[in-house]
């Protein structure tokens, strides 16, 4: 018989064990990603599922964010007689922060929960065990494909969200004042530098990876039947969002050193 001794308090011990398990899972992901026999067909399937499932929601949210943010910013700028700065101000906010954050939060809810629930359900119904006993590596088939798909698809969705937000900005600006599309574009992108685009790409890639790996980790380690599946889906969303906000702060700090 084995008994367990606590190193610190049971809560801290569990947190440390969870942290180590998570780190091991990430190492396993990288190990399997660079091994042979990449499941390309499943990867393409997952890219399609992630993109397709979030497209409508991101279109709407992106457009509304751009439109409303412009509308809310206008009165403040009018006070200082600086409404001509409106397109530039809103574009910087969208590219640097809003598009990556809005897209990733939507995907954390939609994609993260879906991955957590799907893998959790496969775990509790022994489908993952069935893969293992048929000498198929479940990490390679299930985890690598999903994490890579979210890491690649979420940045694409981020740029699409940015495009939809800019459409909302242009609509609001053109409703408020008579401006041509080319003049709007010139004003909007006048103050955008390459670092802003790189920041958006870095953010989107790290958020995409976070959503994929957290969803897979929570789903892959689900237990206790249907209750465990629900918990895995819920924990995927909560932990992804938590990590996304921490990463946001970190990336902003790091990229600001280069400005």
């Amino acid at each position: 018989m084995r008994s367990r001794h606590n190193l610190f308090s049971p809560k801290i011990d569990n947190w440390l064990i969870g942290f180590k398990d998570g780190a091991d899972f990430i190492v396993l992901f990288f190990k399997e990603t660079f091994s042979r026999d990449f499941e390309f067909k499943e990867f393409v399937n997952q890219c399609y599922r992630i993109g397709n499932s979030s497209l409508v929601l991101i279109s709407l949210t992106g457009f509304v964010t751009g439109f409303v943010f412009t509308k809310q910013s206008r009165p403040s700028l009018e006070t200082f007689g600086a409404t001509s700065w409106l397109p530039s101000l809103v574009t910087i906010a969208i590219i640097r922060a809003l598009a990556p954050l809005v897209t990733s939060l939507i995907c954390a809810g939609k994609v993260g929960s879906s991955i957590g629930a799907e893998l959790g359900s496969m775990k509790v119904t022994e489908q993952i065990d069935a893969m293992e006993v048929s000498a198929v590596n479940p990490v390679r088939f299930l985890v690598v494909t999903r994490v890579l798909a979210s890491t690649i698809t979420i940045p694409i969705l981020t740029f699409y969200c940015g495009f939809m937000a800019m459409t909302g900005v242009f609509l609001n600006v053109s409703l408020g004042e008579d401006t041509s599309f080319s003049a709007f574009l010139e004003q909007a992108f006048n103050n955008i530098i390459f670092l802003d685009l790189w920041t958006a790409i870095i953010k989107a890639v790290s958020y995409g990876f976070t959503i994929g790996i957290v969803g897979c980790y929570k789903g892959y380690n689900a237990s206790n039947g249907t209750l465990g599946v629900g918990k895995a889906a819920n924990a995927s969303v909560v932990m992804s969002m938590f990590l996304i906000f921490i990463e946001e702060v970190f990336i902003v700090q790091v990229t600001n050193w280069f400005r």
Binding site: D37, E118, T125, A130, V133, S134, V136
Partner: peptide
């Protein structure tokens, strides 16, 4: 070794044909 699970453990997202092919094409 063949393992028949208590709840069959068929892959929900695949057809019967894809379920059967799964171990074959990968091994």
């Amino acid at each position: 070794i063949g393992f028949s699970f208590q709840n069959s453990a068929l892959y929900d997202s695949m057809t019967v044909q894809e379920n059967l092919e799964f171990p074959l094409v990968r091994n």
